[in-house]
Amino acid sequence: MWRLASAFFLGWSLGANDASNVFGTAVSSRMVRFWTAAILCSVFALLGAVWMGEAGLETYATLSSYSVDVAFIVALTSALTVTLMTLLKLPVSTSQAVVGAMIAAGLFADSVHWGSLTKVVVCWVGTPVGALLVAMILYKLLGAVFNRLNLNLFRYDAALRWGLIVAGCYGAFALGANNVANVTGPFVASGLISPTWGVWLGGLAIAAGVITYSRPVMMTVGTGIVQLNAFSALVVVAAEAVTVHVYAGIGVPVSTSQAVVGAVLGIGLLRDVRTINTRTLGNVVLAWLFTPAIAFAFTFAWLWVEKSL
């Protein structure tokens, strides 16, 4: 059971990092106090994990078969990859790291299910593209509603503040539902714990990350999103939540960070194409390619060295 510590560590870092994608805007602009956001985010992430997280666990179980030892290595190398990409300041996806590591472990044991893998990779491409489209639709729809309501300055402000809180709670729910499989998926696939234990343990690990260490990331990433403007920030969080929620239903863990980038690009396309930062876009593409590749390399190298010894 001690091997589950690596899963808890991965879940903790996921919670600490990804909470910024759902509540960063609200906290960094100080409209919601950190503790209010952290508690709301952790409660809704746990709720999402427990309520809708099992579909993702099932997908991971079909990717490959592992021993408990391999599950431990997958979780640890994924966490190492996430840490490395974070140090390189690239928009990292925990899902891609975990899947890259799982494929390496599966190839090593010659037990990769290519059908499930194709589904996962298609969804990776679909995440930013889906978020981009959802953001464009939401921007137009919500914009028309706001214009029609002719809200005065204070009501407009209040509507955006409540909207960001509600969208943040929904985003936290989708985060828990979608990403819990990254945390305990390999251990459920190895048979060490049941799916029910998997969603509870993963959900609690994410919640712990949100509560204990999400503040600095929220302040950094949140201010980046707020630069758009409050209305666009609301659309970004809502589009990210809808997209990630859809993938939670399909049962494929995807990256909330990449959904955010897709949504920001969608708004950039609607407002002014020149506002799109091509360097950021390049970084996203690099992270797309390198995250699973690095996790794959770490895991394969570890297993190869272990076998050689």
């Binding site: 409209m31 106090r33 503790w35 209010t36 508690i39 204070f154 402000d157 209040a158």
Partner: peptide
């Protein structure tokens, strides 16, 4: 834990 209700501040500022 404290929470700032959006309407409270608006009323203060407006008045």
């Amino acid at each position: 834990m404290s929470f700032t209700f959006p309407w409270r501040g608006s009323t203060n500022v407006k008045s």
